[in-house]
C-alpha cells in the first residue's frame, strides 16, 4: 500500500515540478522579500519587523494560492487527459491514488515553503537579524495552513471542474482566514445571522489558527504563541486534512472514467 502511494506521490512531485508557474511564484516571493528590504529601509528602525511580516505573509499567501492551483489541476488533469485510465486499472485502490496525489503535492509545497522561508532568512541575515523561535513556529503554522488548503483543493477537484473547484477553494480559504473577524462582526447581529455564520464556520477549517500573529496581543515580534498552541493548531489542520481527503476518496471512488 505504502509503495503504491509513494509511487503516485513521486510521480505527482515530478509532474508538479514541471509547472512553470511555480518558478514564477518563487521569483515573486524572492522579489517580495527584496521589496521588504526597500520598505524596511524607508521605515523608522522597523526593517527587521517589515522583513518578517512580508516574509510570513508571502509564505502564507503564495503557498496557499499554489496549493489551490496544484490541487485543482493535478487531479482534474488526470481524469481529463485520461492518464488515470492506465493507473487505476492497476492494483491500486482509488483512495491510494488520491492520497498519493495529495502527498506528492505536499512534497512540492513543503519544498516551496522551505524556499520561501530560506528567502526570508536570507533577508533577515542581510539585515543582521537571526531566525527566532517565534519565526520557526510561525513558519510551521504557515506550512500546515498550506497543506490544509491543498486538501481543500483536492476535495473540490475530486468532483468538480477546475473553475468551480477554484471558486469553492478560494472561498473556503478566505472564510477560514477571517473566521474570528466573522464571529466579531456577527456578535451584534440578529440571532439567525449569528446561527447561520456559526454553522458556516463549522464546515470550514479555521485557518486563522495557523496565522495567529496580529490577532489580539499575539505578535511574531514579541509575545508569540506557545508550542502547545502549535500542536493544537496542527491537530486541527491534520483533522481537517484527514476529513477532506476521506471525502475526496469517497467521491473519487464513485466516479466513472468514461
Amino acid at each position: 500500500m505504502l509503495g503504491r502511494i509513494w509511487a503516485i506521490a513521486l510521480n505527482t512531485f515530478r509532474e508538479a515540478a514541471r509547472i512553470k508557474v511555480l518558478y514564477g511564484l518563487l521569483v515573486l516571493v524572492f522579489g517580495a522579500n527584496f521589496l521588504a528590504l526597500v520598505l524596511g529601509a524607508m521605515s523608522y528602525h522597523e526593517d527587521v519587523r517589515v522583513a518578517q511580516d512580508i516574509g510570513l505573509a508571502g509564505m502564507s499567501l503564495f503557498g496557499s494560492l499554489t496549493a489551490i492551483l496544484l490541487g485543482l489541476f493535478l487531479l482534474y488533469n488526470e481524469v481529463q487527459k485520461r492518464t488515470v485510465h492506465a493507473i487505476v486499472s492497476k492494483p491500486i485502490a482509488r483512495w491510494e491514488f488520491v492520497v498519493g496525489k495529495w502527498l506528492g503535492m505536499a512534497l512540492v509545497l513543503s519544498v516551496l515553503v522551505g524556499l520561501f522561508a530560506l528567502a526570508m532568512v536570507l533577508m533577515l541575515a542581510f539585515q543582521g537579524a537571526g531566525m527566532s523561535m517565534a519565526l520557526v513556529k510561525a513558519t510551521l503554522l504557515a506550512w500546515l495552513e498550506v497543506l490544509t488548503v491543498a486538501a481543500i483543493a483536492i476535495f473540490f477537484s475530486s468532483f468538480s471542474t477546475p473553475f468551480l473547484a477554484g471558486i469553492f477553494s478560494l472561498a473556503m480559504w478566505v472564510l477560514g482566514r477571517v473566521t474570528p473577524e466573522i464571529v466579531d462582526a456577527t456578535r451584534a447581529a440578529s440571532s439567525w445571522i449569528r446561527v447561520t455564520a456559526h454553522v458556516a464556520l463549522e464546515i470550514v477549517p479555521d485557518l486563522s489558527l495557523m496565522s495567529p500573529s496580529g490577532r489580539g496581543d499575539v505578535t511574531i515580534h514579541s509575545d508569540f504563541v506557545s508550542w502547545g498552541y502549535v500542536v493544537c493548531s496542527a491537530g486541527h489542520g491534520v483533522g481537517w486534512i484527514i476529513g477532506l481527503l476521506a471525502l475526496a476518496c469517497l467521491l473519487f471512488a464513485r466516479r466513472d472514467f468514461v
Binding site: N11, R14, E15, R18, K81, R82, T83, H85, A86, S89, K90, P91
Partner: peptide, 16 residues
C-alpha cells in the same frame, strides 16, 4: 487486477 494487463484506447501517459 494483479493478473490483468490493460492497454487503454488511444493510450495517454505522463508525457514527461
Amino acid at each position: 487486477r494483479f493478473k490483468v494487463g490493460f492497454l487503454p484506447e488511444s493510450p495517454y501517459f505522463y508525457d514527461y
